[in-house]
């Protein structure tokens, strides 16, 4: 058991270090093509982190949306513009201060969270435990994620689908209008 935990910690450390390095790379690099490729690599690493956390659904979404579709969309947007980032016009002091301040507050906030995987947290004892207990008798669907998303919280998923629909229509309206003018 001891070696298993150490192995997981090691994998986490490697993944998180690579994530930090890629983030630094994204900040430093001025070539936008390289930034898009690095963002794709970031998404694949994030998907691996999600698999370590046993969130396979999220990992699948991150790999296909973050690394696949966003990369292609960013590349096709890049085709329409220049591939070099313009040099910054203002000093980075204020943004840096805001980012470091927000980061520090968020890290401070994590000390108030329960430890990872604790069984007696509100999300594991409240409605989550209720879904796990009732799910199979009520829906006959072994995968609780699917039954919660589509059945118990159907309204929520309907809202999400409508958000995707609205976003798609918005992008289409914007791009089509510009194409007709230009």
């Amino acid at each position: 058991m001891e070696t298993v935990i150490n192995m997981e910690a090691l994998i986490n450390m490697v993944l998180l270090t690579l994530l930090a390095l890629i983030t630094l790379g994204i900040i430093r690099v001025r070539n936008l093509f390289a930034v898009v490729v690095l963002t794709g690599a970031y998404s694949f690493l994030m998907a691996s982190v999600m698999i370590v956390l046993d969130a396979v659904d999220v990992a699948m979404t991150e790999a296909s949306v973050g690394a696949g579709i966003s990369t292609v969309l960013a590349l096709s947007a890049l085709y329409l513009t220049k591939t070099e980032e313009a040099p910054p016009r203002y000093t980075a002091a204020l943004p840096l201060f805001v980012v470091i301040g927000t980061g520090a507050v968020l890290i401070y906030g994590t000390y108030g969270l329960p430890h990872f995987g604790m069984a007696d947290t509100p999300m594991n004892t409240g409605v989550g435990a209720d879904y796990l207990a009732r799910n199979y008798q009520e829906t006959g669907v072994p995968n609780v994620v699917t039954s919660v998303l589509a059945s118990y919280r159907g309204f929520d998923t309907l809202g999400e689908t409508t958000v995707i629909f609205t976003a798609g229509i918005g992008v289409l309206l914007l791009l089509k209008r510009f194409r007709q003018e230009g």
């Binding site: 396979v56 659904d57 699948m60 979404t61 995968n143 994620v145 699917t146 039954s147 589509a150």
Partner: peptide
């Protein structure tokens, strides 16, 4: 296969 394994409409 979303009922049995990871995945679903979005993925």
């Amino acid at each position: 296969h979303g009922d049995y394994g990871p995945g679903g409409g979005f993925q």
